[in-house]
Amino acid sequence: MDILEVSELNVAFPTRYGLVRASQNVNFSVKEGEICVLVGETGSGKTVIGQAILHLLPQNAKISGSILYAGEEILSISDQKFSRLRGHEISLVPQNPTDSLDPLMRCGQQIAEVLDICGTSREDQLSRTTSILSDLSFSDPELVAASYPHMLSGGMRQRLTTGIALAASPRLLIADEPTKGFDYTARKRTVDMFLDLERMGIDSILMITHDLVFAEMIADTAGVLYSGELVEFGPAADVFSSPLHPYTKGLVAALPKNGMTPMPGMSPGLARLPNGCYFHNRCATPCEENSVHPVMRKVCGRFVRCNRC
């Protein structure tokens, strides 16, 4: 069953440079018990998708489309109604753990705060906090609970924000860039942690990242975003081992372990998108005509947005 189904999601922001279309006709679904990863570069609109799901977009955003959570429409419901879901059912691990933690509050308190809102009694809060921290493989949970965020390393803060997101036992976790700036041992530990969340009752995760290596290690299904659009979506093993869209091919070839072959050019600004294929001027195998905007089509069990495939 699909726990999350996003269809025809459009998000745009009016700016003085024109309408910035941050996300266009995005369709994907997360099945229960699955880790779905959206891979995209800076400015591809990946964070906007996560924020749209959680009703966290700024007031001036123009949103259309539909988002179903467990079969129920959540995009059009009021913020007040949604606040009953946020944290309890769908939870967010924010992008920057250092900025997302309160520097003046002890780490344990920051988890207990969530429990407090959920109505857990004072006595239980302490034991629950300790058990959450030890589940996240902190070797000394009491010590961590008593320390302040600045006393922890980047990886530990990451685990702490995950702990806060998990405190109300949500069903769906949205993790935004959980490995930004990590070295590869820390990355490996993050992978282990997310794979281990299953044991703690979280089974569906929507992960948003620009780290292709991390995505490859963890994903069941994967989507690749380019200039606000999904260009490829399907089983992760297929997408990364035999990419179909020229952009995905370029990304895979740009990985250091694959020889770091750079793609030419830069992604177009979201306010000045061309009419035809957005990737046309960077494509290694461009179509002669670039007047028709490609649509998502089903090719070999996955969806690809390319006129050539």
């Binding site: 570069e41 780290d211 990304l251 793609m263």
Partner: peptide
Amino acid sequence: MLDMSVQAQ
């Protein structure tokens, strides 16, 4: 701090 494709560039 940069994207993979930008890193390669």
